[in-house]
Amino acid sequence: MSSSDPTAASLVARRTRRSLGVGFFASELAVLFRRRRTWAMLLALAAVPILIAVAVRISSSGSSGRGPAFIDSITQNGLFVGIAGLTIAIPLFLPLTVGVVAGDSIAGEANTATLRYLLVSPVGRIRLLVVKYLAAVVFCLAATLTLSIAGILIGIALFPVGPVTLLSGDTVSIGDSLVRSLLIALYATVSLLGLSAIGLFISTLTDAPVGAMAATVVLSIVAQVLDSLSQTEWLHPWLFSHYWLDFADLLRQPIEWSSFGQNALLQLGYVVVFGALAYGRFSSKDILS
């Protein structure tokens, strides 16, 4: 390893000013994406649109008459497979994987006892929270992009591809539709920011990562159930899952940005509240694991 044969003096050198933690963030990403678990989750997500496409292809009945209309339209245009995959994955599969990553963030380190070594390295507690959260955000982006790209690729492979019909009945070019697919993946990523912050907070409460993961996923389901009950209508605009499926507004002509904005604002609110809670909890916590 020591090919350069550095002198002892150069190894003793230290930075005079503390680094911003970019190196640690890069290392955190490397750790996240070197884990077999991460890849397994991304593969499972990629399998969602692939399974949809194959199932529709095999059944090859033009219209099932059930579910969102554009599940049917994937037979007419393969570029819809990615969007159909996201629609299926948003209520459960995406929150599941995000719950695993966010719930594991602090509790997982506590569980492997690496938390105390990170903290005495020292990475400041706030910095650790921020880096862990950003890593979870990168995972959200990777997850939604994986889904979209896998869907588009399998769609191109199995179905005809052409200009895309939007919900408004207008038709846009393939290039425009790819841009919209990217925007939808971004929308889904933004949608998961609040859940990631909740997962991070729960993760600071316990040393058992599985518990934190499960609690995060359960909360995402509870939020969606509450969102579907008319008795809790007053609560709906405040639920982090409220705008999850409104990415359809990106399929209108012209694009309706208001749901993107409202969603981003709501998620930001969750990030601020649960980020502050995570800070309050984590910065005052005795690390005894």
Binding site: V272, V273, A276, L277, Y279, G280, S284
Partner: peptide, 17 residues
């Protein structure tokens, strides 16, 4: 000594409100 660490958590909803 640690109560002040919860200030942001208490302040965030207030600020949002």
């Amino acid at each position: 000594r640690t109560w002040h660490r919860w200030i942001p958590a208490a302040a965030a909803p207030v600020a949002i409100g």
